[in-house]
Amino acid sequence: MGAASIGHRSDSSVRGRLVSDGRVRLALGVLGCVALVAIFAPMLAPYDPRLQLDISHLQSQPPSFAHPLGTDTFSRDVLSRLMYGTRVSLTVALVAVFLSATFGTMLGAIAGYVGGAVDAIVMRVVDAAFSIPAILLLIVVIALWGNLSVVTLTLLLAGVGWFTISRLVRAETLAIRDADYVVAARALGASGWRVLTRHVLPNAIGSAVVSATLSVGNIILLEAGLSYLGIGVRPPTPSWGNIIEEGSTRLSDVWWLTLFPGLAILVTVFACNALGEALRDALDPRQLLPAHDDAPIRMNG
């Protein structure tokens, strides 16, 4: 039959399906803008975010031409603070997710592939960690250690984020471990490391990527929550959470202080989740069209 029999490749590739997905384009657009703002904050921000411009005259000004998002109670420009806050919030979230995803994937894959006692220990730790709410865990740690740098906060957020991913990757690994192509690799004489890195991980990683993308939104919310409680990113360093915190006491008259960072969080989290869901759909192996002898659907048993 030759080439005619295998002509579906462009339509069925993961990338093809992602690009044609409207959600993905919108989410990537939003996240791209947010990232650009974070990267070029020093150039884009009209004022120094920490500078108290004029504490007696420019305190708590509503949005105007000079200050599009108004000023805060210390007469600082909210737009500038929001831009620098994007830097902090996004960096913390991305680094934390990267660390937790890497660690969680490795641990999950090893636990699932090696099995036995290793698996039992890792999974009991995960179960235990799951039974304690992350925010409570963080509050306790912070209460014990006191003032935290942004770096420590990132590490902490990463520390509470890896459970979900490792459990997910372990479950995937368990299923993949017994797949015939893994048995085939072992039969060829492949070492355990080779089987893990070339056969198990590439097939388990899809769900880890989806989970990581979805958790970016969670970590942003968590960081905002902690900062709101006053135990996350400390003022005067701006983050989305602590800008909201500053405005929270005067919600009725200085509304712009909570509304704009709140919108920033909403839009970013929404975009992350949309991207995660689109990835999940695109990576779903059921979406990989089988060759034509089963097309269009596996109905002709």
């Binding site: 015939d180 085939a184 690799a185 072992r186 039969a187 004489g189 097939n203």
Partner: peptide
């Protein structure tokens, strides 16, 4: 054992699960 595996091989039943979909 890994060296001996060269001499003894296996072919599977299910042509869909026996090939790594990412290779």
């Amino acid at each position: 054992l890994r060296r001996l595996r060269r001499k003894m091989q296996i072919v599977f039943q299910d042509p869909f699960s026996s090939l790594n979909p990412r290779m």
